[in-house]
Structure formats: C-alpha cells, structure tokens
C-alpha cells in the first residue's frame, strides 16, 4: 500500500502476460494511452467497460478569487477531462480496501 505504479510496471505486466519483448510491451502501453488521448482530443468520450469512462467537458468562464490575497481573478472558459469510474471498479476497490481497514482494527 502506498506505492506508485508507473508505465514501467504496466509494460512489465504486458510483457509477463502476453510474451512480447520488453521494448514492444512498452511501446504498446504508450500506444494505448496515445489512442485514448487522440480520441479525447477529438472531443470523443472513451468508455472502457468495467473500468470507467473519460469525457471532455466545456466549462464556462467565471470570476475566481485568489484564496491567499482575496483578489478577484477571471477564469477563462476551458475544457476539462472527467473520469467516471465504473461500478465494477468502485466495488472492486471498496471490497479490497474496506476489508483491510476492518481487519486492521
């Protein structure tokens, strides 16, 4: 618990699971992320069943405030990426982590 997983870990998993070379496994991980990014940059939603969906939302401009100085700052209209986890993912995480906390108590 508390570790950080990176591309290298994902490539290693692909290498172990599919048996391509390490280099090619790394390229494919990159390629997957690239295809998802391309689709989003196109304005499309990406839905990965049992994981979740990514979509791009347009947000309007508004007046914000610098919390430190109290100064008003305009926030320009922008696009944000929203990830909605699937029920399967949420349940998977809760089943694993709630059990752990309960066991530790």
């Amino acid at each position: 618990m508390g570790e950080t997983i990176t591309r290298a870990h994902l490539s290693e998993a692909v290498y172990q699971e599919v048996g391509l070379s390490r280099n090619e496994s790394a390229d494919l991980v990159e390629s997957v992320l690239q295809h998802i990014s391309d689709s989003l940059a196109n304005g499309d939603t990406v839905k990965l069943s049992s994981f979740g969906s990514f979509s791009v939302r347009q947000k309007g401009g508004r007046m914000g405030r610098n919390p430190k100085t109290g100064e008003e700052v305009p926030i320009k209209p922008r696009r944000v990426l929203v990830f909605r986890p699937s029920h399967v993912l949420k349940e998977h995480i809760n089943a694993a982590l709630s059990g752990k906390t309960a066991a530790a108590e």
Binding site: M1, E3, T4, I5, L89, H92, A96
Partner: peptide
Amino acid sequence: ALARGDRVELR
C-alpha cells in the same frame, strides 16, 4: 493497484 491503495502515475 488502486485496490491495493496504490497510486498510478502516467506522466
């Protein structure tokens, strides 16, 4: 990884 409470960082 998330179910272990780990973080996944993809720069």
